[in-house]
């Protein structure tokens, strides 16, 4: 095992945080959007979105650890959150 520098440890901690908390937040927003926009009855849409949530979460976590840097990982979490958040917000305004 190579010696672990402080910056390496920090990068790992940052990614872990991005994966666990950022990943959960992104998943929560993604299933909110799915539940709203899926063309089904609202009960079925809520259920479908919730059933898919753990799959989405897993993909996000894997991506966070696979991408080149911790900064990219955070960007990759935040950017789709902004887009999804805007969509959900616009829909709330419209209804």
């Amino acid at each position: 095992m190579a010696s672990l520098t402080a910056s390496y440890r920090l990068a790992v901690a940052s990614r872990a945080l991005a994966a666990i908390l950022g990943g959960y937040a992104l998943t929560a927003l993604a299933i909110t959007a799915l539940a709203i926009f899926l063309p089904m009855s609202r009960a079925e849409a809520s259920l479908t979105a919730t059933l898919l949530s753990f799959l989405i979460y897993t993909c996000v976590v894997i991506w966070v650890f696979a991408t080149r840097s911790a900064t990219r990982a955070w960007l990759g979490i935040i950017a789709p959150m902004v887009v999804l958040g805007a969509l959900v917000w616009l829909q709330r305004l419209a209804s």
Partner: peptide, 13 residues
Amino acid sequence: MFMYMPWGVQANY
């Protein structure tokens, strides 16, 4: 799942 991920239900109800 409704405990871990309440957001899909929250969105519509």
